[in-house]
Design a protein around this nucleic acid. Structure first.
Lengths: 112, 112
DNA sequence: TGCACATATGAACACCTCTTCAGATGTTGT
DNA sequence: ACAACATCTGAAGAGGTGTTCATATGTGCA
């Protein structure tokens, strides 16, 4: 170890997110980290609520691919669904997700 | 198409993030979406600034793996580095990244 | 009941990613 | 210049991921 003070490192390790929490956080980010899923989420951010076939249309991906993608997002609690007849409407699950999507767009705008 | 109004879908597609922007956003999230990288970032969030070997120590991953991970994060502008002698100190690149990490932790806390 | 529609699911394959290993680069102190 | 150290890099293999295809489920309407 170089001129770093070991106390700070130890303290950092203690306050640190646990490996388990980090894994869950990574899992959350990983789900946002796919072009198709990201586009779906930003479509929902704009539209509020859309059904599978409209999402497929908006993002230009097959219904099947969208369905697969939405299942992952739903299971993770990132989107929520509502059934109306035979169509299922999806929306962002909560305000945190919306803020997360907004904030990252900001980051991209300013970082270039 | 079901009972959806096509106008809203079209409008959504227009306001939508472009496929290119979505790809860049996904790329950003994808980089956060790995347990090792996530732990590195949260370590930096707590500590402010740490060198490679301390990060490896805190996250309990080989120096090499940390180095590889940091290169991806640095290239993407998520972390920044500062050299002092032969050690290189890393820190989170900007406030947006910090907020992003904070916000996601909130999401996890409340969503369970 | 039967058909059309919207969505969901499972298997399979091509593709990408992360880690490790071996070695290179750059830096400090003697 | 040399040795010790901190970090970086490239190649390669194990493992994981997203799409597609075929098919299943569930719903509304005649």
């Amino acid at each position: 170890m170089p001129e770093t003070d070991a106390a700070r490192v130890a303290a950092t390790r203690d306050r640190l997110v646990t490996p388990e929490e980090a894994t869950r956080l990574a899992e959350l980010f990983r789900l946002l980290g796919d072009p198709t899923r990201a586009r779906l989420l930003y479509a929902l951010l704009e539209a509020g609520e859309l059904c599978v076939c409209d999402l497929a249309d908006a993002v230009e991906v097959s219904d099947t691919a969208v369905s697969h993608a939405l299942r992952l997002l739903r299971t993770a609690g990132i989107v929520a669904s509502r059934r109306a007849g035979r169509t299922v409407y999806y929306r962002l699950a909560d305000a945190h997700v919306r803020m997360l999507l907004d904030l990252s767009r900001e980051h991209l705008k300013e970082t270039g």
